[in-house]
Simulated assay, not measured.
Amino acid sequence: MTRKPALAVVGATGAAGSELLQILTRHEDVWGGIRLIASPRSAGRVLSVRGEECAVLALDEDALAGVDLALFLTPGEVSARWAPVAVSRGAVVVDSSDAFRLDPDVPLVVPELNPHAARLRPRGIVASPHDTTLTLLPAVGALHAAFGLRELVLSSYQAASGAGRAAVAALREQLALVAGTELGTATGDVRRAVGEGRLGPLPAPLALNVVPWTGAVRSDGWSSEELGLREETRKVLGLPALKVAATCVRVPVLTAHSLTVHARFEDEVTVAKAHEVLATSPGVVLYDEPALGDFPTPADVVGTDPTWAGRVRRAPDDPCALELFLCADNLRQGTALNSARIAELIAAEFPR
């Protein structure tokens, strides 16, 4: 007997949840039914998916009953509590939070790179990487397969939406406050104009500014997102000793993360060969004609699926190293799309 599996989307009313519902509507229908779940305060809202109106259910054990696969787009503390409950009720869980990414019994999956790992889930959970990691890996993973990756030095330029809707609201309010002013020419004038009460979840003003910090404090001056980018990259690529150093920066962009990448390889590389690899890799678009003004920016890539790659150069002092710039929509490619693709891999395990 064949049947399509039943899907639950937990966190359906969030920003990534909204993107996911669009993706489910656009992709092939592999689901026997889709159940939308969110926090109790969002229960009763009606959302559209695949042309049907669905009432949102409050997250509880009953809402998770009878589900084959539960896709969590929730904060880590919510996933940590409720993902095991969903597994105990018979579901496979795909989780987009940081709750399980580095758990050795939970595979961390990027379908373009390690789809086989989605089947290896002793805890019944599959994790999706952080949105910054997902901006990086489609391109860097393809280059690793061609040249053998040895070392990464990274700087991220992360959009406000990566810190949640409160950060987006704070940036919008700050931009309105500073619009048309002469701020930014004297020490502290932007901070005074914005005021401490309008920072939202950020440690400093984001309008007319960049903030060299994302995540929580960790030892030796590192942030949780910098160390997470390092460990997630190692785990997905299967390179536990890979040298990775990252500096994560929040920038005044609403949506789409960017990265500068210094990648050192075992073999000598050329720009022509790197272009060939990137242009033919799934999940990557090569956009690299600087003389024509062609290189990816957040304004270009927002609302699109792939990682965009440009500014590809061979390092001037190392024939085994490349410099490049990557950019991707952090809500779409960086969260919702990867989770949907993992879920579709698992759905294919059901007999048809």
Rank of each mutant, 00 (worst) to 15 (best):
S18G: 15
E19T: 00
E19C: 12
L20D: 02
L20C: 03
L20I: 08
L21N: 02
L21A: 05
L21S: 00
Q22P: 04
Q22M: 12
I23M: 06
I23T: 12
L24Y: 08
L24E: 02
L24Q: 05
T25Y: 07
T25W: 04
R26F: 00
H27S: 14
E28T: 15
D29E: 15
D29H: 11
V30M: 15
V30N: 09
W31A: 08
W31Y: 12
W31V: 05
W31M: 07
G32I: 13
G32R: 07
G32C: 04
I34L: 12
I34W: 07
R35V: 06
R35M: 01
L36M: 09
L36T: 09
I37H: 10
I37R: 00
I37W: 04
A38G: 15
A38N: 02
S39H: 05
P40Y: 08
R41T: 14
R41I: 13
S42E: 09
S42N: 13
S42G: 00
A43C: 03
A43R: 11
V46Q: 08
V46M: 04
V46D: 02
L47M: 12
L47P: 01
S48M: 11
S48W: 09
V49C: 06
V49L: 07
V49H: 07
R50K: 10
R50I: 01
R50A: 04
G51P: 04
E53H: 12
E53C: 09
E53G: 05
E53T: 13
C54H: 15
C54Y: 03
C54W: 04
A55R: 15
A55I: 05
A55E: 14
L57T: 05
A58W: 06
L59T: 01
D60M: 11
D60A: 12
E61W: 09
E61G: 14
D62N: 12
A63S: 15
A63H: 10
A63C: 07
A63W: 02
L64Q: 07
A65Q: 14
A65L: 12
A65I: 09
A65S: 14
A65V: 07
G66Y: 03
V67N: 11
V67G: 10
D68M: 07
D68V: 03
A70I: 06
L71S: 09
L71P: 02
L71K: 01
L73V: 02
T74P: 01
T74S: 13
T74E: 00
P75Q: 08
P75E: 10
P75L: 05
G76K: 00
E77F: 13
V78T: 14
S79V: 08
S79L: 09
A80R: 15
A80M: 08
A80T: 02
A80Q: 14
R81W: 08
W82F: 13
W82R: 11
A83F: 07
A83G: 10
A83Y: 03
V85K: 12
V85S: 06
